[in-house]
């Protein structure tokens, strides 16, 4: 459903949390690639410090974002400036029902029009919400690998369980955890690519809004 992106959709609080998420992911991915394989010499201490710092920033930002959704008001529908508390956009909403399959069909060119939906469409909502367990999984696997925390029973139990799936008898080999941690990063990379693509496929008005709070007067986006 075509509508105009409005600045009431993303108030300043969430512009900031979005920026922090982006910066954190950028530094985490870059330093993570370096820690996986130090492609140029000289930066390991820096890369590890960067990695640990931004992970804590990402975690606190996630916590703040969830709490803020109960206090900050955002638009509740596309094509309107009407606002409501943000957390309501994240639950199962009437406007989302029976929209998942039509949305998939639209993107597969099996349906002409984008289905009418809530502020976030079914697929979009699933993808955004999935980043929460994905972030927590990245943190958990990271702590399971990090020296100071890897021997804490809460993390060691996960290491043992995960290793046992690929390596009968368990024993807590760290290699499967290392690979999982790496793959979670790739899941984030793919999410980010799809997210950036779908957000900006019609024009860059949504980006101007989420990064700078600037509303394009005449822009229309298809969903």
């Amino acid at each position: 459903m075509a509508h105009k992106p409005v600045k009431e959709a993303h108030p300043l609080t969430f512009i900031l949390t979005h920026w922090i998420n982006l910066l954190a992911m950028f530094f985490l991915v870059l330093s993570g690639f370096y820690i996986h394989f130090p492609f140029i010499p000289g930066l390991m201490g820096l890369a590890r410090g960067t990695h640990f710092f931004w992970m804590f920033v990402l975690l606190f930002n996630l916590l703040f974002r969830i709490i803020a959704s109960f206090f900050v008001r955002t638009t509740n529908m596309p094509g309107t400036r009407e606002q409501d508390l943000d957390y309501k956009n994240w639950g199962l909403q009437g406007a989302n029902t029976h929209q998942l399959w039509p949305t998939v069909k639209y993107y597969l060119f099996l349906k002409k029009d984008y289905p009418i939906s809530a502020k976030y469409a079914s697929l979009q909502k699933i993808a955004y919400l999935a980043t929460i367990p994905l972030t927590l999984a990245a943190a958990y696997t990271g702590f399971a690998l990090w020296g100071p925390t890897s021997q804490i029973p809460f993390f060691q139990a996960g290491t043992r369980w995960w290793a046992s799936l690929f390596n009968w008898g368990g024993g807590g080999a760290l290699m499967p955890m290392r690979i999982l941690h790496y793959w979670i990063m790739w899941a984030f990379l793919i999410f980010t690519a799809v997210h950036a693509y779908l957000a900006n496929i019609y024009n860059f008005a949504p980006s101007k809004m989420i990064f700078a709070g600037i509303e394009e007067p005449d822009a229309l986006i298809g969903h």
């Binding site: 459903m1 509508h3 105009k4 409005v6 009431e8 638009t75 529908m77 094509g79 309107t80 400036r81 009407e82 606002q83």
Partner: peptide
């Protein structure tokens, strides 16, 4: 959009 733009005005 017309139907849902009661409060706050249409975009």
């Amino acid at each position: 959009e017309t139907k849902h733009a009661k409060k706050g005005g249409a975009a």
